[in-house]
């Protein structure tokens, strides 16, 4: 039962969140004509052991998408930022 520190709401139980997948995947630019980049964006995901940036939707809270840095081996949550503000790591609203 992971605790996720929502940038708006503070430490909240993982049951308030819906998992949203890999946050490192970047949607290609709309005019990107390379189908392999689009294919990778839609279909290809790594399954890393260790630190991982991922999206969680605070469905039963502030309804914000947050980007959580979690260690997939230990579940340790290193931090969370609002997904819309993911300019750099460690940024808070």
């Amino acid at each position: 039962m992971i605790l996720i520190s929502c940038p708006w709401c503070g430490d909240r139980d993982q049951t308030e969140f819906a998992y949203g997948g890999d946050a490192t995947v970047q949607r290609p630019a709309p005019d990107d004509a390379d189908p392999t980049r689009w294919f990778d964006y839609v279909h290809t995901r790594d399954n890393p052991r260790g630190s991982h940036r991922e999206l969680w939707f605070h469905a039963f809270g502030c309804r914000q998408w947050v980007e959580v840095t979690r260690d997939t081996a230990t579940h340790a949550v290193a931090g969370a930022v609002l997904a819309g503000l993911r300019v750099g790591e460690g940024e808070t609203p």
Partner: peptide, 13 residues
């Protein structure tokens, strides 16, 4: 609605 928020918050903030 969640998908709308996903795109609004993560792709087109």
């Amino acid at each position: 609605h969640a998908l709308m928020e996903d795109f609004l918050q993560t792709e087109w903030p």
